[in-house]
Design a binder for these strands. Structure first.
Length: 270
DNA sequence: AAGGATTCCTGTTGGC
DNA sequence: TGCCAACAGGAATCCT
């Protein structure tokens, strides 16, 4: 499940092969993604040079002179650069044939991902209201504290809200709350500045460690080079319900919050 | 208006 | 062993 580290790993993997390359041909095999792939996407991209591959939150942008393609990997999407004679696989929904005998292939079994076009990517409705990047200076405990005042929502929902901070999906929310010793159901507005400093640091640590290790890799996610990431091995609570807490030995508890698996230590997290 | 519930989808898993 | 329901989750959107 691509979370921010996986998306950044993907960007780093494809950028060297894409930047400066001309798009020779665009093949849309299945336009039924989260939103329909624009019918004029081939006409918009063909003949143009990919100037840069950028990431913002979990969105990737292919920047061209006339605008940008917005790509989201959704739940099960992946982008790979391969030689252009490699046979298409099932769920290879979008392909950009490049000028270096390579192709950029978008594969997405569950089709929660998207390919969109924008001429003003910073002002695109999906992008403009996003919160700060978790590894940027703008994201810190003071920011979390200020935004959370009077909020009744549980802190786990709060940090997974893209208006608060981007890139914190279910797995990393569980991990960060454990590291910070905060109970996932605690009301966001009832947490001190001190504890938010700790939480911001935990989010930062969790995500940067995962980026270094190449992403979490659960089930069907593979990096752009086709190799799995190794972060899954260092998960402390996610997927470990019933196992002893690494801090105190208490059995980790699992509950459902907003229909999402939530694992925590009932003793260490308050 | 905030916050919870629903929705999209298919490969994998678990129970009988 | 085989089949099928349950589950997984990003995030927009709908609903209360």
């Amino acid at each position: 499940m691509p979370e921010l580290p996986e998306v950044e790993t993907t960007r780093q993997g494809i950028a060297p092969h894409c930047e400066g390359q001309t798009v020779r041909k665009v093949i849309v095999r299945n336009p039924s993604l989260r939103w329909p792939v624009p019918g004029d996407l081939p006409a918009l991209l063909e003949g143009q040079v990919i100037r840069a591959v950028e990431r913002r939150a979990k969105y990737l942008f292919l920047h061209f002179d006339t605008g940008s393609a917005i790509v989201h990997l959704g739940m099960s999407g992946s982008l790979r650069v391969i030689t252009d004679d490699t046979p298409a696989m099932t769920h290879d929904h979008v392909e950009l044939v490049l000028g270096n005998h390579r192709s950029l292939r978008f594969n997405d079994p569950r089709r929660f991902g998207c390919w969109l076009w924008t001429t003003e990517w910073r002002h695109h409705p999906l992008i403009s209201a996003l919160g700060p990047e978790p590894l940027s200076e703008a994201f810190n405990g003071a920011w979390l504290f200020r935004l959370s005042r009077n909020k009744q929502a549980p802190v786990k929902s709060f940090i997974m809200d893209n208006h608060v901070v981007v890139g914190v999906g279910n797995i990393y929310a569980n991990e960060a709350l454990f590291k910070a010793g905060i109970h996932p159901k605690r009301k966001a507005g009832r947490i001190s500045l001190d504890r938010y400093h700790k939480l911001a640091e935990a989010i930062r640590e969790t995500l940067s460690a995962a980026i270094l290790m190449g992403g979490t890799t659960l089930r069907d996610f593979v990096n752009s080079d086709g190799k799995p990431g190794y972060f899954a091995q260092s998960l402390l609570v996610y997927g470990k319900a019933g196992l002893p807490c690494t801090g105190c030995g208490t059995r980790l508890k699992e509950i459902r919050m907003n229909n999402r698996s939530t694992v925590y230590c009932p003793r260490c997290q308050r």
